[in-house]
Every structure is written in C-alpha cells, then in structure tokens.
C-alpha cells in the first residue's frame, strides 16, 4: 500500500469546504486554490458584497461555490453556516476557520478597555472555536471524519505591543493542538496555518507596491508574502496528502520567524 499517486491525494474533488473570512484577503486566496483543486465551497463573511465578488471570480473559472453571510462571533450564525453547507452539498468535509482581524485599542496595557479585549478575542478565538465546534459536530454525525484548519499569526509566537491579537492567535494555536488530540478518534484532523507578513490583496497602485517592496526588505526572502500564496498550503492540509498530519503549526513567513536575533542586515563577521 503506497497511498496512491501524490497528485491524486492532493485532489479535493467534490469535497464540501467552508471558508470563513472567505470574501477577501487570505481566505479569498485559499478559496481560489481549494476550488481549483476541485472542492465545492461555502464561503462565509460578514459582507455579502465581498462574498459575491469572490464567488463570481471562482464561478468564472468553473468552480462550485455558494455563500453565506454570517458574523462568526455569533455561534448561532456559525451553526447556521455549517447547516447551510450540509444543506447545499449534503455534507461538510473541511472547515477553514480563517476569519479574524485586528481591532482592539491603542490604549496602554494598564488602561486597556474590557470591550476592546473581548472584541479581539471574539473575532479571532471565539469565532475559531464556534466554527470548529459546529463543523466537528456535523462531521461526527456524518461519521466520515474531516479536517479543521485554523489560521493564527506569526505574532502569536513572539511578544508584541499590540498584545490582544497575538494573545487570541496564541489561543488558536493551542485550541488546534487540543482539537487534534480530542478529535483524532473521530478521524478529524486539525492543523493551523501561521502566516507571517502576507499582503491581503494586490497592491492598488505603484505607491503601495513600492511600500510593500520596502517592507519586504526586512524579510529573509526580501519580499512580503502574497495573498494567494497560502493557497497550496490550504489544499495540502485539506487533502489526503496530509492524512497523517495533525496538531501541527505550519508557518508560512518567508523565513521571518527563523531569524529575529537582529536586523535583517546584521551579518556578524568573525574569523580566526
């Protein structure tokens, strides 16, 4: 038993996949790649117009996609999202709990308001929990197993001034490991994607392109990531190609987290 052809194993033919935060940014990038690999998508986000735009792009390339406007910080709406996927495609195979974002407050730590902290935790951590809880329930009821993929952030792995977001994303990494442990017996895998500095869209003009190029010089690979570069990783983690991989954290950051002992141009010279 060799597991079959590698290219067959990365095939997502007919898999029913929910992508939260699928209207724009990294979610949109992952949706495109998942569709290209054959998945049937249920895209979710708060803003219907963005969902429509992304869905139209995917349909124009022959993809199968439905949308569901939902606020993923509300568990009732998340449950309805998963139900919508099951209604549309008869099942749910993969949940990309990708929605998240910044916000919070610029206040000093000792003055940081309750509601700002709670908002960031809700947007990034509670939403991920709600999404994975609802998906896993459906997967267990189907008896088919499935895959949960979360999105964290490189900021979660190091200290940072805007602490609420990294704190929430650190929670996402930890949640993913626990889900992998708890759900393995139900044939549900859970893995986490950790993007570094990845742009959310194509630059809108030359000035933005130049700004990004400048910021890119601080990365080992000398550029920022592009919004679509998470796509192949999403396909890999959703597919049978990663059948023995669970509880893991996949960093995609152009080498940023491999370094960090000094500025990018710091190259000690000391010869004998």
């Amino acid at each position: 038993m060799t597991g079959g052809d590698v290219l067959e194993r990365v095939d997502l033919d007919g898999k029913a996949i929910v992508v939260t935060g699928g209207g724009r940014g990294l979610g949109r990038g992952m949706a495109h790649a998942l569709s290209e690999a054959g998945a049937r998508l249920m895209l979710a986000a708060r803003t219907q117009s963005q969902l429509d735009a992304t869905a139209e792009e995917i349909r124009s390339r022959g993809g199968t996609v439905a949308t569901f406007a939902a606020d993923v910080t509300d568990s009732t709406q998340v449950n309805a999202l998963v139900a919508a996927c099951v209604r549309e495609y008869g099942r749910i195979d993969v949940m990309f709990a990708n929605a998240g974002g910044g916000g919070g407050s610029n206040a000093e730590f000792w003055d940081y308001p309750d509601d700002a902290f709670e908002q960031v935790i809700a947007t990034n951590l509670k939403s991920t929990f709600y999404s994975c809880r609802a998906a896993s329930k459906a997967m267990v009821e189907q008896g088919t197993g499935g895959v949960l993929v979360t999105t964290a952030s490189g900021t979660a792995l190091r200290g940072n001034r805007g602490f609420a977001y990294p704190t929430a994303k650190g929670g996402v990494i930890s949640l993913t490991k626990s889900m992998a442990t708890m759900l393995a017996g139900h044939n549900i895998r859970a893995n986490c994607i950790v993007p570094g500095y990845v742009s959310q869209n194509d630059p809108k003009d030359e000035q933005e392109r130049a700004q990004r190029a400048q910021r890119g010089t601080f990365m080992p690979v000398q550029r920022l990531g592009e919004w679509w570069e998470l796509g192949p990783l999403a396909v890999f983690l959703a597919s049978e190609a990663s059948s023995y991989i669970t509880g893991e954290t996949y960093i995609i950051d152009g080498g940023g987290l491999a370094g960090g002992l000094g500025p990018i141009k710091f190259r000690p010279q000391h010869e004998w």
Partner: peptide, 15 residues
C-alpha cells in the same frame, strides 16, 4: 559577534 563599529550589531541589541 557584536563589534562596536558595526551599526547593525548595535541595532541587534535593541532587539
């Protein structure tokens, strides 16, 4: 490794 005349090394200390 942190040569006093290396500006980048001095910046590394601020990391």
């Amino acid at each position: 490794r942190l040569r006093p005349d290396d500006e980048e090394a001095q910046r590394a200390v601020r990391f």
